[in-house]
Design a protein around this nucleic acid. Structure first.
Lengths: 190, 190
DNA sequence: TACAATGTGTTGGATAAACGACAAATCCAC
DNA sequence: GTGGATTTGTCGTTTATCCAACACATTGTA
C-alpha cells in the first residue's frame, strides 16, 4: 500500500512478457525457450526484457509465483478464515499446480518450484492468520506460519509419492486436518 | 515499401486506441464517447492519444478507413481481377459497412463517412486496375478510377434510397455491372 | 446569470522502451 | 578438438509514453 503507483508502461510490458512466456510454455518445454522467443512473441525489444527480469530463470520464478498466488489468494479474500474448507482447497490448489507443471515439463527445476510453492503458501497463510490472531505476538505467529507452510508442502510431496494414484487430494488432506487445527495432542473427534 | 519500419511502440499504441474505440462504439454511441473513455479503456495516457491523432474525429476517420479497407482489400489479394464477381462483393462490402454503421448510431457524420468510403474504394479499385492495365497512360487510368469509385458509391446510395427493402445488394449491382464493364454504349448481352 | 463540474487540447520534464552494437558464453556440426 | 552460428547480457543514444499542470470550451444545474 506504501508503493506510489507503478508506471502503466511497466505493468503493460511485464504482462506482455509473462503472458508470452506462458503461451510459449504450452508449445515447447522450458529448456527450449529463448529470451528472443519470448520478446518476439511479446513484440517488445530484447533489451527491455532485461530491464524487468534478471534472466529467464528470474522470469520463470515470477510467473510461477504469480500463477500460484492468484489461486491461493482466492482463499484469503473469499473464505477469509483458516478452517478445514480453506485448508483443503489450498491443498488442492497446490497439487493442481504441481500436476499442471509436470505436464509442462519443467524437469530439473523441482527444487526451485518447491521453494516457490512454499514461499507463496507462507504469504497466503500469514495473511489469513493475522486476520484471526491480531492480538498475539507477531514473532510466534510468523514462526507458526513458516512451520505450517513447510508442513503443508511436505504433505503434498507425501501425497504425490504414495497416494496420488489411490486417493484424491481432498480425502488425503482431510485425514490430517484435525492435527493441523487442533494439534497432535488431540485425537480426531468429528 | 520505402518506409523505414515504424517503431513497435507506435503500432502497439495505435492498435490499443483503435481497438478500444471499436469496443466502446459497441456500448454507447459516438457523441457520448470521450477521449478519456478511450484512453482509460486502452490503458494509455491521455496525452499519448494526441500524439497519434488530432482529435476524436481524426480517430473516427482512421478507424473507419481501416475497417473498410480491410474488407475491400480482400478482393485485391484474393480475386485479383476486376470482374463481375469482384465488383459485386465490393458493393456488398460497402452496403454491409453502411448498415453496420447505421446500427452504431454515427448520425451527423454521413458526409464524412461518404468521403471515407469513396476514398477507400478509390484506393482499392486503383490497385486492381493498375494490375490489369500496366501499359496505359497513368493519368487517364487515375481519372477512370475516380469516376468509377464515385459511380459505385452513388449506386450504393441509390440502393439504400429505393431498393434496400425490395432487393438484395447483389441483385441490384449485378443489373448494372454490364454498364460498368462494357460501357453504356453496349446493351447487356448475357 | 452564475458557478461548479467535466472535457479538450497543449506543454515541459521525467522515465520506459526501442535500437544497434558489442563481447562473452554456449551450442553444434564436422 | 576447431570454427561458425546462436544466444546471452550490457551499454549509450534516441524516441515514445507518462504525468502533472495549464488555459480554455462545454455542459449541467441551482
Amino acid at each position: 500500500m506504501t508503493q506510489s503507483k507503478t508506471d502503466p508502461r511497466i505493468v503493460r510490458t511485464r504482462k506482455l512478457i509473462m503472458d508470452s512466456f506462458i503461451e510459449l510454455s504450452g508449445k515447447k518445454e522450458f529448456k527450449d525457450i529463448t529470451v528472443k522467443d519470448i520478446t518476439t512473441e511479446a513484440m517488445i525489444n530484447r533489451a527491455t526484457f532485461y530491464y524487468h527480469f534478471e534472466d529467464i530463470y528470474d522470469l520463470l520464478e515470477k510467473v510461477l509465483s504469480e500463477v500460484l498466488l492468484i489461486n491461493l489468494d482466492y482463499e484469503v479474500f473469499e473464505k477469509n478464515e483458516l478452517n478445514e474448507e480453506s485448508i483443503v482447497s489450498m491443498f488442492i490448489a497446490i497439487t493442481n499446480f504441481q500436476t499442471s507443471l509436470s505436464n509442462r515439463c519443467h524437469r530439473g527445476y523441482e527444487d526451485t518450484i518447491a521453494r516457490i510453492i512454499r514461499e507463496q503458501l507462507e504469504i497466503t497463510l500469514y495473511k489469513m492468520l493475522v486476520k484471526q490472531h491480531t492480538t498475539e505476538k507477531d514473532e510466534a505467529l510468523k514462526t507458526a506460519t513458516v512451520m505450517l507452510s513447510w508442513g503443508i508442502y511436505g504433505a503434498s510431496t507425501e501425497w504425490r509419492r504414495n497416494s496420488e494414484k489411490v486417493q484424491p487430494p481432498e480425502d488425503f488432506i482431510k485425514s490430517v486436518v484435525p492435527y493441523i487445527l487442533h494439534g497432535i495432542g488431540f485425537g480426531s473427534r468429528d
